[in-house]
Design a protein around this nucleic acid. Structure first.
Lengths: 191, 191
DNA sequence: GTCTATAATTCGATAGAC
DNA sequence: GTCTATCGAATTATAGAC
């Protein structure tokens, strides 16, 4: 008796191991320094398998950098707490998943990674902010400002590892940064 | 009759040309993708000259990434406008000099560049913020928060080139972001 | 499906002529 | 001081045996 339905092939485990190792290496070393050889070694498989499954290094990165921000529906959050909800959500997401850090690092030097990141923040964050109402153009601008603070937090804390930012607890960070995001989202447009 | 005093040697021009080309390449491509060969081609000199003058690629980067933020003395600024002064200063600095963008890109993948950047922000920005008074520990934390917003702005505008952030004028950016920096600098410590 | 062997580039760095 | 020539290492990617 063989497996039924989605047919859990043996290769799926290999594929998953490669992706897991790839995300870690891309997050730790960036796109250029993360080599297929090192990723394969981490995953305990042969380097040629990576090529077989993903075609090229670009293809591997594209598969490893698939990412859903899983943003909460901001319409279901009290309007004066959307900033807090967003900051808390992002911190949770980062502390538990390397993928976004890998994207930040890779986007610094790899045009494809940068394009993917622009897409993620324009589409997913842009849509969430547009859901708050207001004119769509202003919403995109507000989303961009939110991205500037959120990504700056990610850069200083997880990539640059600036000591004062690393030392703050997630709760402290929320307390300091949430008002910033709140104002970008719902504050008045400055003169 | 020969030159007197500091003796403007012919090689100084070559040296300066190399550094200028290096800053551009490091800013555009990051540390790994910026090759000595490409930098030498931009500077219209032979690749081996780079090695002769700077010893190694690391040595070249160290020389090219020398950077002074030239922060204004915040003690001479009205206390309710220090945020505006800082944001305006950083924007001016970025729009006229590639070096800091080169550092942001390089710091993503190169440990030496990251260390240098931590030093710049801890020492120079840290000192400027400490000059505002208050306890030193709190000042470093406030400086770190300012760095998170300032570097996030640099990352989204100059590295990632996120359209909504690129499209804003410097004046608009100051109007939006200055209140954030002002609060990090002089606002109350959150509960 | 998995691995060995290797092709084809590209890079940083060195040696040495002029 | 400047350039030619090249070494040695590392990389992605391919061809093909088992």
């Amino acid at each position: 008796m063989t497996d039924t339905a989605p047919r859990a092939r043996r290769s799926d485990a290999t594929r998953a191991a490669i992706l897991r190792a790839a995300r870690e290496r891309f997050a730790a070393d960036g796109y250029d320094r993360a080599t297929i050889r090192a990723i394969a070694a981490d995953a305990r498989i042969d380097p040629s398998m990576v090529m077989r499954y993903f075609g090229s290094k670009e293809g591997l990165f594209a598969a490893a950098a698939e990412f859903d921000l899983r943003l909460p529906d901001l319409a279901g959050v009290p309007r004066d707490r959307v900033g807090e909800a967003l900051v808390r959500h992002f911190l949770d997401r980062w502390e538990s998943d390397d993928t976004l850090v890998a994207l930040v690092r890779a986007a610094s030097t790899n045009p494809g990674a940068a394009e993917r990141m622009r897409g993620i923040f324009a589409d997913q964050l842009g849509a969430a902010v547009t859901g708050l109402g207001g004119d769509p153009t202003g919403a995109l601008r507000r989303a961009g400002l939110v991205a500037s603070q959120i990504l700056g937090l990610a850069f200083t804390r997880y990539v640059l590892r600036l000591p004062p930012v690393v030392d703050l607890t997630p709760a402290d960070l929320v307390a300091w940064v949430a008002p910033t995001v709140q104002r970008y989202l719902t504050g008045p447009t400055p003169a």
